[in-house]
Design a protein around this nucleic acid. Sequence first.
DNA 1: GTCTATAGTCAGATAGAC
DNA 2: GTCTATCTGACTATAGAC
Lengths: 218, 218
Amino acid sequence: MPNDTKDLILNAAEALFAEHGFGSTSLRKITTKAGVNLASVNYHFGSKEALINAVFERRIVPMNQQRIERLKGLQEDYSGRSIPLEVLIETFIGPAMALAADQGKGGAVFIRLLGRSYTEPSATLQQAIRGLYGPVIERFKLAFSQVLPELPPEEIYWRMHFMVGLLAYMMAGTDMMRLIASCQVCDPLDIPATVKRLSVFLSAGMGAPQRGGEIESR
Amino acid sequence: MPNDTKDLILNAAEALFAEHGFGSTSLRKITTKAGVNLASVNYHFGSKEALINAVFERRIVPMNQQRIERLKGLQEDYSGRSIPLEVLIETFIGPAMALAADQGKGGAVFIRLLGRSYTEPSATLQQAIRGLYGPVIERFKLAFSQVLPELPPEEIYWRMHFMVGLLAYMMAGTDMMRLIASCQVCDPLDIPATVKRLSVFLSAGMGAPQRGGEIESR
DNA sequence: GTCTATAGTCAGATAGAC
DNA sequence: GTCTATCTGACTATAGAC
């Protein structure tokens, strides 16, 4: 049922959370926008916090499945040989950006929300997201180690952290882009171009030679 | 007066905003933590929103002054010659990271807040921050153009955007670092090491050769 | 400048009829 | 499953004594 009450609530909540944040979005605003009864949120989800988790699960689970499947396919295609760094990176950022481009499924709204969630202080939400991400991160960590064998494990972790962080920021996609006020040519909604630019930038960063001795391992 | 009521409020607000976000932090919690009267926030600042702006101004103004001064010094030192890319990048991220290291001035708390503000939806706050950042961005944009003359202007804008974004994310510094669960060696509080790693990563990304034809300008 | 008291609004959650 | 009605508590903001 696509227009189930549950989905109506999830859609409205997703949009409002993305636009105004969690703390400033009340259940009243959500149910009004969804056109459903105020009490139905607590009936279907139990609490506001549980609703927030549900909003994330609905999209993150398929997105990370896609990442893992694409990585598996890649590892078969390149069996034995080394996967090009840039291809690996695009496999990671692609599904996120694809969701952003998928207007029909409301992905564009969600992706902003996802970006925001990375800086969200709520402990329970962070824990939930960590659970949803853990397996993906570990799989890609292994893949990156093979592609970049000259880098020590902790440097791989740091650089993946940078990659995830930058992706999250791009996805948050607030008007901070306009910080750089005079950049009228920059169109953040041109997803394929953004993916390309990001992947060039990230490939260079991820693959940068580690400068001997200047960073001591701890 | 270091322990002015105004400063007590600013300190408490800064800490609570950083920990719980804006929407979830009430004036009651702030005044309780500060040990001052509930009404004093409205007396000194006028409203909650004005308090939020004041929290940011107190730290951003000196930080950006520092950035500009260091850039000026750099341009004198290298008069005529080209500033090394990595030096320029460290001039930009240094003052932010220095604030993070400056426990005494409460900078570490603020820097998380600053990171969070980049994904904050409040329109008025974004406008205020944009005003505080504009001049710095434009100055550095010019400097980057000189250091990277082979890149077209819009590519410079995009990459600065990536740089600011990644810096913001690092500063938000929630436990998302722990996403990469098994990374026990990564210590986000080791500021000098983090600056070095970031600057290596960003220098490679900022200076990456643009791949001919694959990104079409719009 | 600092306090108390309170107005006025809105929140999340639930009980119980249908 | 959906609705109305309502409880209880928290919120911002302000008026007015000191």
